[in-house]
Amino acid sequence: MIRVVLPYHLRTLAQSDAEVQIAVAGAVTICSVLDALETHYPMLRGTIRDHVTQQRRPFLRFFACGEDFSLESSDIELPPKIVSGEEPFLIIGAIAGG
């Protein structure tokens, strides 16, 4: 199972916990993880990636094992610790509270 951590506004939308677990078939890439996430939580479609362009929303970023994957190709394979579920794939969102 792949662990995915969602920012607060997406947790509310998905009515999920901060961390969700999803099964991903085949290669574990940003794209396949997000596809599986959207299949599980259809209400997240269009919230992480633009409906049309499939581009990451600019106020969200993707991290894996402490490294920023936001600007990487969505087809590259994620690190083994993400694949094994040892580390979560993080979707970080901008917040502005002070």
Partner: peptide, 25 residues
């Protein structure tokens, strides 16, 4: 560099809307 553009207004709540644990700040 981190967030080139903000979320659309109202998508991400402020502390006034979403609340904040007082100790966190």
């Amino acid at each position: 560099c981190l967030y080139p553009a903000p979320p659309p207004p109202g998508l991400v709540p402020s502390c006034a809307e979403g609340g904040v644990l007082g100790i966190l700040p």
